[in-house]
């Protein structure tokens, strides 16, 4: 059975002044898929996400998230998506519970519903013990995990994660990737995440898109990208570095 397409972009273009940040991007992501959005810094990944969220209006092209146009129906889109910005911040003088409760209230989740949900999520992201400490005292990894809990509090259908592993140590990175993987496999959420590290993207993604200087140069499962990019036969060995350099040089 063909899966429903939840994110669809066609000819999406965004310019700042004379600079084209996103150039005629067309992409579709199916329900329940983990899509890894790969590209060097400044490739336009964040701008693409902002357009998907309706926080920035595209200059040309169309976007739809679960059938809604984020530019025209931003509230509808924001109700069903969760967004974790790069280096997410919290209200440092409040504890984890208070931070989560605030976001829950903004999503019109009554406190009696959110209380149970907050406890469950804090357990899931392994922060239950630190839940009553002010978030200002948290480490970077803990903050990122709290960010995931915050995204999940509204039980979104689609999750956008902007560089969720940036600045984390190997242990933190592993925890984070496992968490993201679990979301998709256990809850059938669609996940769209960006990163500039291929090895992390390939570990959990079903499909990968490579974006360089505003252009999507390739999209598909990693094995397919390897075959196409390097001209290999099926089953032939390749290294991640090879793929990485190949596409990045082309761009």
């Amino acid at each position: 059975m063909e899966k429903e397409i939840v994110i669809r972009m066609e000819g999406l273009t965004k310019r700042y002044g004379t600079q084209t940040v996103v150039d005629r991007l067309s992409l579709a992501v199916a329900e329940g898929e983990i899509f890894g959005f790969l590209g060097p810094n400044g490739a336009g990944k964040t701008t693409t996400m902002l357009m998907l969220l309706g926080l920035t209006e595209p200059n040309a092209g169309t976007v739809s998230v679960c059938g809604f146009d984020p530019a025209r129906d931003p509230l509808k889109v924001k109700e069903i998506i969760g967004y974790l910005p790069e280096n997410v911040g919290f209200y440092d003088d409040m504890d984890a519970r208070q931070n989560l409760r605030y976001i829950a209230r903004l999503n019109r989740i009554p406190d009696r519903v959110s209380s149970a949900r907050i406890d469950r999520l804090l357990n899931e992201v392994d922060l239950a013990k630190e839940a009553d400490k002010p978030v200002g005292s948290y480490s970077k990894g803990m903050k990122q995990r709290l960010g995931i809990a915050e995204v999940l509090i509204k039980e979104p259908r689609v999750v956008f994660l902007d560089e969720p592993t940036i600045g984390l140590d190997p242990d933190g990175t592993n925890k984070m990737l496992d968490l993201i993987n679990g979301l998709s496999r256990e809850r059938q959420m669609t996940i769209f995440f960006s990163s500039h590290l291929l090895d992390q993207v390939q570990r959990i993604s079903d499909r990968i898109g490579i974006m360089i200087r505003g252009k999507l140069v390739a999209a598909g499962p990693l094995a397919e990208l390897a075959q196409r990019g390097l001209g290999l036969e099926e089953g032939e060995a390749y290294t991640l570095d090879q793929i990485y350099m190949k596409y990045f040089k082309e761009g």
């Binding site: 509230l75 924001k78 109700e79 911040g89 209200y91 440092d92 976001i103 903004l106 999503n107």
Partner: peptide, 14 residues
């Protein structure tokens, strides 16, 4: 500066 604004505007509020 606390990086909470982008989070706030991505919630379903005007």
């Amino acid at each position: 500066t606390g990086r909470t604004l982008s989070k706030l505007v991505s919630q379903p509020i005007y």
